[in-house]
């Protein structure tokens, strides 16, 4: 398959083969009808996202999610195709001593606020983000409230 061509309505299998052919480091962990799940190293997030946005016509970034697994953190991207309803879930693991990942808000403007939210709640830094400021929590906060190390009073 030609990995540079633009595919408007790629099927699940096409997405799987195109991604693994072009980027050998991507590990496709599973496919379901209209869903593709993939894992990738954090250094390549921006490059892969650019390819998905331009060549596979995934015009919409639904969410950027942070998850705290205590020994490492994970960033999850949900990307959506408006032509056939396909969704790609990309996840990248971040080690605790290097919580940096390249921002994708230049690729999808809609990711801007999701990245700000993930930064303020988990402390995951999105490099080259246009404006990484606190959004939901007060500006005076110096901690990241959604980390597992931040305990709620009462039930824990």
């Amino acid at each position: 398959m030609d990995t540079e061509a633009v595919y408007q309505k790629p099927s699940e299998e096409e997405v799987k083969t195109l991604l693994t052919e072009k980027f050998p480091f991507i590990e496709v962990t599973g496919t379901e009808p209209r869903r593709v799940y993939a894992k990738l190293p954090k250094e390549n997030v921006l490059e892969v996202c650019k390819y998905i946005q331009h060549n596979l016509t995934f015009e919409h970034c639904s969410t950027v999610i942070g998850v705290d697994y205590v020994d490492h953190m994970t960033v999850v991207y949900h990307l959506s195709n408006y032509w056939n309803g396909l969704m790609i879930e990309l996840s990248a693991d971040l080690p605790l001593d290097d919580l940096h990942v390249e921002s994708v808000s230049g690729v999808w403007e809609g990711a801007n606020w999701h990245e700000r939210e993930t930064w303020e709640l988990f402390g995951i830094v999105f490099d080259n983000h246009p404006r990484l400021e606190r959004l939901l929590t007060p500006k005076t906060y110096e901690f990241f409230p959604f980390r597992k190390s931040y305990k709620l009073r009462g039930s824990e």
Binding site: E59, H60, C61, S62, Y82, W108, E109, G110, A111
Partner: peptide
């Protein structure tokens, strides 16, 4: 249309 999809409006 393109801008709408890119800025994440749904």
């Amino acid at each position: 249309r393109e801008q709408c999809a890119n800025i994440g409006m749904t």
